[in-house]
Amino acid sequence: MKNLAELLKAHPFFEGMDEDQLELIARCGENGIFNAGDHLARENAPADQFYVIRDGRVAVESYVPNYGSLCLQTLHNGDVFGWSWLFPPYLWTFDGRALDEVHAVRLDGKCLREKCESDPQLGYALMKRFARIVTDRLHTTRVQLMDIYNQQKPALDRGQ
């Protein structure tokens, strides 16, 4: 059976990270299993952790008044859910809901923030990885919006 540091090392998010850094990060983590329908996070609730998805699917959702929950993205094994633990006021900006059984490493945000404060190299290494996730997801959202608005744009009458 692998320890948490070995599980993290095998995850794409931590690729190329220093072994000592992985050991420090692993000390803030624990394995978690979520059943289909379980929430990993609730919008506007305290964001005290993030999740390294090892297996399963997580829906990133937002509540829309008069509509209900809207799935913005589906995350899979190899993905990370949650960056709100890193930025004040440390509140979730989205819901995270397991679509099937999810195996994940839950990492304690407060523990990691403290480690990052005392070890700026660790903080920078994590910040670079989270910045990549944020920019990738922003790009994905932009493409989705272009698809939506392109479908709604009326065809131009070239004869006038």
Rank of each mutant, 00 (worst) to 15 (best):
Asn66Ser: 15
His76Tyr: 13
Asn44Ala: 12
Leu75Glu: 03
Leu75Thr: 10
Pro46Gly: 07
Arg42Val: 06
His76Ser: 06
Arg27Met: 03
Cys71Thr: 07
Gly78Lys: 15
His39Thr: 04
Gln73Thr: 02
Pro65Gln: 07
Leu72Ile: 12
Leu70Asn: 12
Thr74Val: 15
Gly56Lys: 09
Phe50Pro: 06
Asp55Val: 05
Val80Phe: 05
Leu70Ala: 10
Ala47Ser: 04
Gly82Leu: 01
Gly56Cys: 08
Asn77Asp: 12
Ala59Leu: 02
Val64Asp: 09
Glu30Met: 06
His39Ser: 06
Arg57Lys: 11
Phe81Cys: 12
Glu23Ser: 03
Leu72Ala: 04
Asn66Gln: 14
Pro46Phe: 08
Val60Gly: 08
Asn66Lys: 15
Leu75Lys: 08
Pro65Asp: 03
Arg42Gln: 09
Asp38Asn: 14
Phe34Met: 00
Trp83Ser: 07
Tyr63Asp: 08
Val52Arg: 07
Asn77Tyr: 00
Asp38Pro: 12
Glu43Ser: 10
Gly56Val: 09
Ile33Trp: 02
Ala59Thr: 04
Tyr51Asn: 04
Phe34His: 06
Val64Ile: 15
Asn31Arg: 13
Glu43Trp: 09
Ala59Val: 03
Gly56Ala: 05
Gly78His: 15
His76Ala: 00
Val64Asn: 02
Asp48His: 14
Leu75Gly: 06
Asn66Glu: 15
Asp55Ile: 13
Gln49Val: 07
Asn77Val: 01
Arg54Gln: 14
Gln49Cys: 14
Asn77Gln: 10
Arg57Val: 10
Glu61Ile: 11
Cys28Gly: 02
Ser62Asp: 05
Asp55Tyr: 14
Thr74Trp: 03
Val52Phe: 03
Asn44Tyr: 12
Ile53Cys: 14
Gly56Met: 06
Tyr51Asp: 02
Asn77Thr: 04
His76Met: 01
His39Met: 04
Glu30His: 00
Gly37Arg: 05
Arg42Glu: 12
Ser62Gly: 00
Glu30Asp: 04
Gly82Lys: 00
Leu75Phe: 11
Pro46Trp: 13
Gly37Ser: 07
Asp79Ala: 10
His39Arg: 06
Gly68Lys: 01
Gly56Pro: 05
Asn77Pro: 07
Gln49Glu: 13
Asp79Tyr: 11
Ile25Glu: 02
Leu72Glu: 11
Leu75Trp: 06
Arg57Ile: 03
Val58Ser: 04
Asp48Tyr: 13
Val60Cys: 13
Leu22Gly: 05
Leu72Pro: 00
Ala59Gln: 04
Arg27Gly: 11
Glu61His: 12
Asn66Cys: 13
Pro65Ala: 13
Val58Ile: 12
Asp79Val: 08
His76Cys: 06
Asp48Val: 15
Ala59Met: 03
Glu61Pro: 10
Val60Met: 14
Tyr51Cys: 11
Arg57Glu: 09
Glu30Leu: 02
Leu40Ala: 04
Gly37Leu: 06
Gln49Lys: 06
Asn35Arg: 12
Thr74Ala: 04
Gly32Phe: 03
Gly68Arg: 01
Val80Met: 10
His39Asn: 07
Gly56Asn: 12
Val60Tyr: 09
Leu72Lys: 12
Leu24Met: 03
Ile25Leu: 04
Gly78Tyr: 15
Gly68Asn: 09
Asp48Glu: 15
Arg42Ser: 09
Ile53Lys: 09
Asp48Ala: 15
Phe50Ile: 09
Ala45His: 02
Arg42Pro: 02
Glu43His: 11
Ala59Trp: 06
Arg57Ser: 11
Gly82Cys: 02
Val52Met: 04
Trp83Asn: 11
